[in-house]
Design a protein around this nucleic acid. Structure first.
Length: 362
DNA sequence: AACATCATCAACCGCCATCCA
DNA sequence: GTGGATGGCGGTTGATGATGT
């Protein structure tokens, strides 16, 4: 039994608003405000609209100082950065963009920005998977596509594409400036939390790691049983196992990502030397070659290559530096009242790790 | 020119949180 | 404490225009 609708759908008008309706609503709110009750408002002004519809129309279109379209690169950067950090909390993201509504930001992300950032990269990553998996026939593996929620997958991909998490975590100079206690707390929480990516970043094979894998696998099994669309696939477990059993050993630990690879979990697992479920498969020669080149390059920093940066138009103004997008390190020092980035900066950094925890439900 | 497909975005839907009697 | 009313939010839909064939 669903809840009662907020209005009688048969007696209210739906669909696009006419200029007359807009004028009525705007004139009333300009003079009297909303009166604190959107549901009662349409009756007061003689509009055959649902109160919620009035509220939405006002907030998204009629409200003063609303901007439509023409998102700047600065705004792109903010949206990308916040999406990576906090996910699809559009109202929070929109709050950082004066004149933008959550609906606008959401639409912009879904229709343009996401494609701009993930579109071609996704394609290339899938083709890479396909090329190494003779069974896939070039079709995206449904199990891997369901491994994570769309949002989590997108954000994970963005992480992998826009940042090299391993080199990032190994190079503290790239970290945002934190107060000492914040950094201590962060490191503490990283050590306490269990995340595959953290394992890559801080490889410290210890007794009990196998147990962690077991625990993780139990989570996955539980997840699979409980949900129609489990957040985890077997490949993510394989990736985790590889991360613990293989490449995270002190000698073999290698920052295998060159940063510009669009690596989803399947690729992560494949990069982990041998994937048990696919042990007989030969590594993609192209990937192998790129991998070796990377190892020879000794550029373990943020290794976004020039040509790859060019694919991310919205970042091209940042001179190859990520500071402008993700790590407003100055935010902790310069309290600029003209922008509202302070809280967001904290969110960004905390959210980056929460993201992985959420993604893995750990 | 006609049709199909794609991209965009305003609007809707339904869930959850909060308020208040 | 409880339950209804309302606000707020994120996900989704569908109309419309643009573009491709």
């Amino acid at each position: 039994m669903g809840r009662a609708p907020c209005c009688d759908k048969n007696s209210v008008k739906r669909g696009p608003w006419s200029p007359e309706e807009d004028a009525k609503l705007k004139a009333y709110i300009d003079h009297f405000g909303t009166g604190g009750n959107w549901i009662a408002l349409p009756q007061k002004i003689g509009l055959k609209r649902c109160g919620k519809s009035c509220r939405l129309r006002w907030l998204n279109y009629l409200r003063p100082n609303i901007k439509h379209g023409g998102f700047s690169e600065e705004e792109d950067n903010i949206i990308c950065s916040l999406y990576i950090s906090i996910g699809s909390r559009w109202s929070v993201i929109a709050a950082q963009l004066p004149g933008r509504t959550d609906n606008d930001v959401k639409n912009y992300w879904n229709t343009r920005l996401k494609k701009k950032l993930l579109g071609r990269r996704k394609q290339s990553s899938f083709s890479r998977i396909s090329s190494t998996n003779p069974d896939s026939n070039g079709v995206e593996d449904s199990s891997s596509s369901q491994a994570l929620s769309n949002s989590a997958l997108e954000r994970l991909q963005l992480h992998m594409q826009l940042q090299n998490p391993i080199s990032f975590f190994n190079n503290h100079a790239l970290w945002p400036k934190l107060h000492p206690f914040q950094e201590k707390k962060l490191l503490q929480s990283l050590n306490e939390s269990f995340s595959p990516v953290m394992q890559y970043a801080f490889p410290s094979p210890q007794q009990g790691d196998g147990q962690k894998v077991d625990t993780y696998r139990q989570l996955v099994d539980s997840d699979t049983r409980q949900q129609d669309h489990p957040k985890f696939s077997n490949s993510s477990v394989v990736g985790l196992e590889n991360s613990l059993n293989g490449i995270t050993s002190p000698d073999s630990y290698i920052p295998f990502s060159s940063g510009h690879h669009a690596m989803d979990l399947t690729i992560v697992s494949r990069a982990g030397v041998v994937e048990p479920a696919d042990a007989a498969a030969q590594p993609d020669p192209n990937f192998q070659s790129e991998f070796e080149n990377f190892l020879n390059s000794k550029t373990y920093g943020f290794a976004l290559q020039e040509d790859k940066i060019g694919e991310f138009g919205c970042f091209k103004e940042m001179n190859g530096s990520w500071d402008g997008m993700n790590w407003r390190s100055n935010d902790f020092e310069t309290k600029d009242s003209s922008n509202s980035w302070d809280s967001a900066s904290v969110l960004q950094f905390e959210g980056m790790f929460q993201d992985y925890e959420l993604g893995y439900n750990v």
